Amino acid sequence: MDSYQNDRTWLKVQEYLPPHNRLEKAELPEEYYLTIDTMEIHIDHYKVASPKGRVILFHGVGGNGRMLSALALPFMRNGFEVICPDLPLYGYTHCSKNVTWQTWVSVGTEIVNHYQSTKQLPTFLFGLSAGGMLAYQTATECPQLNGLMASCILDQRNKEVTKHSAKNPYVGMAAKPALALLQTVAGHIRIPMKWIGNMKAIVNNKELAAVLIKDKKSSGARVSLAFIHTMLNPVIKTEPEDFKSCPFLLVHPAEDHWTDLKYSLLFYQRLACEKQTVILEGAGHFPIEEPGLMQLEQACVTFLESHL
């Protein structure tokens, strides 16, 4: 099966990371596939001998599981096993069906249930970018979770959120009505996600952004019109005022040029659960800069340890 062993993009990404967060040969994750429905979901599994708990990391619409290695390594080094799936349409996951946002929620839920059925451990979710809302929706389906962490949490049902998280405000305003029409007759057609999302702002380093946008397994991926339409119109079963099943940590980058903190706060401030916010100094949307990346590690590990 395909794997990251022969993939050059993730190796290129390592050059832009702080040395402490670079993935060396001795710490490479185990790669394998998990069958969910008709899909073969690629998994990066960072293992430890006697794990304190488990962290499942969800990427967003500009990444894949291997891109989360900079976050996975600190968790592993602090005694947690880490699961990084390639969500359908991204990375090396194989999927022939038409993928919608609900497919992602179902996959997230099945992943949690699979690992909990294999070995019960205190389990946490972390969502980066759009993975933040995915982690939240997965948590509403999996009440046994110990905690939820996210770099942002965007409720795309809010027109202002859609307007300001799209490639530009004009695309954001036109996207919902246009997609509502198009997806009924052409929902299976795939377009580059960069046509809709502001992929140039996924990282603050322009050279790295260019590398990622060329990568068809991450920021250069093509997604179906049905996926975009359902992502912008998610069915959220549990509103934040009713969410009390686990604590929530928001670790938002201070220099995020894609999704401003105020748009995450629209949803976050409504949460009824125990919650905490940490602002990551100097970090962009994909937080690879110091001191923000170290602050993320410290805040998340403290959160994990306190909710085991």
Rank of each mutant, 00 (worst) to 15 (best):
V107S: 02
A70W: 13
H20I: 00
N78H: 15
N78V: 11
S69K: 07
I41A: 02
V107N: 03
N113H: 14
V48C: 06
G91M: 14
I56D: 13
T100A: 01
P51W: 06
Y46V: 02
P29F: 10
R22G: 09
I56Y: 07
F80T: 05
Q116D: 05
K25I: 11
E30P: 01
I43R: 02
L57I: 15
M39N: 10
S106R: 12
L121D: 04
S106T: 14
H42A: 12
V107I: 15
I56N: 12
D44T: 07
V55C: 08
M76I: 05
I111L: 14
L68P: 06
H114S: 08
Q14Y: 02
D86T: 06
C84N: 13
P74T: 08
V13D: 00
L68V: 11
K97G: 01
T100W: 01
R54M: 12
F80K: 03
F75C: 14
D37W: 00
F124G: 06
K25C: 03
Y115N: 02
A49F: 09
N64Y: 08
G53P: 04
G53N: 08
W101M: 15
Y33T: 13
K47L: 11
V112F: 01
I56G: 12
H45T: 00
P51I: 12
R77P: 09
T35Q: 15
E30G: 01
A26Q: 09
Q102T: 15
K119G: 00
P19S: 08
T38K: 14
I56T: 13
Y115T: 05
E110R: 13
Y115M: 03
L73Y: 02
G108P: 02
K25L: 06
A70G: 07
L87I: 10
Q120E: 14
R22Q: 15
V55I: 13
T123G: 01
E110Q: 15
P85R: 04
G108H: 02
K119T: 06
R22W: 10
I36N: 10
T123S: 01
T118Q: 12
I36P: 11
L23A: 03
P88C: 12
P19F: 02
Y16C: 03
L89R: 08
K119A: 04
Y115H: 12
T100V: 00
D37V: 00
S129T: 00
G108E: 01
N64A: 11
L128I: 07
T118K: 13
F124T: 10
H42C: 09
V13K: 03
T123E: 00
L121Q: 07
G79C: 08
E15K: 14
D37E: 09
I43L: 09
M67N: 11
V105L: 04
V99E: 07
L71Q: 11
Y33G: 10
I41C: 04
T93Q: 15
I43S: 03
E110W: 02
S117V: 00
Y46W: 07
N64F: 10
I83F: 02
P29D: 09
Y32L: 12
